[in-house]
Amino acid sequence: MSVVAASQVDRRTLIRQSARKSHRRRQIAGVVAAALCGLGLCIALVPLISIVALTVSKGIAAWSVDFFTRLPTPAGIPGGGIVNALVGSLIIDGLAAVMALPVGFIVALFLAEHEGRLANTVRFVVDVAAGLPAITIGLFAYAIVVLPEGHFSALSASVALAVLMLPIAIRAGETAIRTVPQDLWEAGIALGIRRARVARSLVIVSALPGLVTASLLAISRAIGEAAPLLFTAIGSQVFATSLGQPMASLSLVVYFDGIQPYPDLQRTAWGTALTLLVIVMLLNVSSRLLARRMRRFTR
């Protein structure tokens, strides 16, 4: 029984020879595939790097202490700044976040914990809402806040941005809550803790790093949007802090100053674009650092 049949020996030899031959071919294929991946990566990086490079090179000239501390000046008069737009963006986006994130995360918890027709419908609606053109959202805020009130306002801009942030917060929040293992739910339930309490004190806490990331993601998406602000905040040349008034914002400065024929205003637009870029980058980096830090247990 230990003697191997002749046909089996032949087959073995054939298999080994063929393996040796194909080895070379597979090596080449591997190198080609790796090269293609590298090429794809370069193609993808080119626009990204050029945008950053262009914005930095054009924007850095506008940056100065005055740029961040003074109010805008009319075209031709040097020394203008964007402090009102910085503060405006902070107020508008901050208020939008306060409106959108808590609601978003509650919906996210619902979606993460419920299967069924209602959850699927909500998920579908949220996905559609995520694809809504920003300008449409601006029009919506115009219709429900600006028209009834009779004037443009920071509040209406916040409403528009909140609507924009909501689907992002919901979907990113759902993902964050879903990463909490089912084990943890069962562990809590089996201890005789009420479901709502398990959700609040155990699940949400475990999902916190993800929720922080989701928040910053939603905020950084909203902060760069100009379209929803066009007929809501509308922009302002003065230092406005009242929610009932028109307010300046960074993205509006980029838009309005960028389309002016005056070089100094165009420079302001580039400087503001760079400011936005840096803010978004800081938000992303800090969300990552914060998430990592929260994951590392310290008490």
């Binding site: 084990d183 809590g188 089996a190 806490v205 475990s206 916190l208 247990f297």
Partner: peptide, 11 residues
């Protein structure tokens, strides 16, 4: 109840 895999609350 004690489960198959240890499931202390990680946070």
């Amino acid at each position: 109840m004690v489960f198959q895999r240890p499931n202390p609350f990680p946070t």
